[in-house]
């Protein structure tokens, strides 16, 4: 450098000269030992899980049986084994499930030897907490009420979820540790500053946090990690043949809750699911990807986003996700 570096003389110029010189090392020095991006994402997610476990009194990990929460479970093993998880695992169950996913959920939790809590949307309906939207209607939005009731019942002060910022433009705005007031509301205009990796998890009684260790992971990162770790997923993530009915630009699996309406025709298609949610509003995509390598190639080349391809409930309005999140959704 030709410019003489001068330091703000306050309060001790000698100390500052030393520290500045330290800071002036060439950037390449640290790169030699830099872990690859999946290892960095993994290390950060483990860090977040441990911070939440330590700072919060009654955390819970949300597990839907989907790929993102399957990754969360592996990260929890990495964070806390050989000890036990310092939290139970909770599924918010809409009652509209793919049976493969429920089988996977129960098997996975049993293998881990951890505790499963099931919060049931059907129970919320039966108890009159939410109106019954009718047979075959999406119960996705109702999950917020069931979730908030479960949080109150178990006095959870942090819910760890597998949501990622690349999923949606409202999620893209959310902190890793996201504050919820005593009504479960997210206020996107007034989020806590989140500096460095200093996650502070203190809340007052009735308030809680949502924690998103996978915030900076993309759909492709998740799949690459599933491959690297050999993580088992429900079979429906891989291409298979099943009867589907085209509706709202999506392919819905024909099931107990989804039948062809007048004018709609069922077809047998080779499909897979990119996301797993309420079976009445989660679409399948045509795919021949039967192996993880084929799925990764497909995701990398896809010109449609994950939610755009698979979620009917996000197509109703411009800010569907933001609106649901404000009410307490995942």
């Amino acid at each position: 450098m030709t410019n003489q570096i001068k330091i703000l003389v306050f309060p001790d110029p000698h100390d500052l000269m030393t520290t500045f010189a330290l800071d002036n090392r060439p950037a390449e020095q640290g790169l030699r030992t830099r872990p690859d991006h999946l290892s960095l994402l993994e290390a950060h997610a483990i860090f977040v899980l441990r911070e939440v476990a330590a700072e919060c009194e009654r955390p819970v990990l949300l597990f839907s049986g989907g790929k993102d929460s399957a990754v969360l479970l592996r990260l929890a093993e990495k964070a806390f084994r050989p000890g036990r998880f310092p939290f139970p695992v909770m599924h918010v169950d809409t009652g509209h499930n793919f049976s493969e996913v429920i089988d996977f959920r129960d098997r996975r939790v049993a293998e881990l030897g951890e505790q499963l809590v099931v919060a049931s949307v059907q129970r919320s309906i039966d108890e009159g907490r939410v109106p019954d939207p009718g047979p075959g209607a999406s119960r996705n939005r109702l999950q917020s009420v069931t979730l908030l009731d479960a949080i109150a019942e178990h006095r959870f002060d942090a819910c760890i979820g597998g949501a990622r910022r690349d999923e949606d433009k409202a999620r893209a705005k959310e902190r890793v540790l996201s504050f919820r007031d005593s009504f479960g509301q997210w206020d996107p205009r007034n989020q806590r500053p989140e500096l460095w990796h200093l996650y502070h998890g203190t809340v007052r009684p009735g308030e809680h946090l949502r924690a998103f260790p996978l915030s900076d992971w993309t759909e492709l990162d998740v799949w690459q990690y599933v491959r690297r770790e050999g993580i088992e997923l429900p079979d429906i993530y891989y291409a298979h043949e099943r009867p589907v009915v085209p509706r709202d630009g999506m392919l819905l699996a024909v099931s107990e809750w989804v039948a062809p309406r007048p004018g709609e025709a069922t077809e047998d298609a080779v499909v897979r699911f990119r996301t797993v949610g309420d079976a009445t509003c989660t679409g399948a995509v045509r795919s021949s990807a039967r192996t993880i390598d084929e799925v990764i190639a497909e995701v990398a080349a896809s010109t449609v986003s994950e939610r755009g391809a698979t979620r009917a409930d996000d197509k109703f309005s411009e800010t569907a996700m933001e609106d649901r999140k404000r009410e307490g959704y995942f």
């Binding site: 410019n3 003489q4 570096i5 001068k6 330091i7 703000l8 003389v9 306050f10 309060p11 100390d15 500052l16 520290t19 500045f20 800071d23």
Partner: peptide
């Protein structure tokens, strides 16, 4: 530590 910047006008 104090703010560490390059030269300020006063110095």
């Amino acid at each position: 530590g104090p703010p560490v910047l390059a030269a300020s006008p006063s110095t």
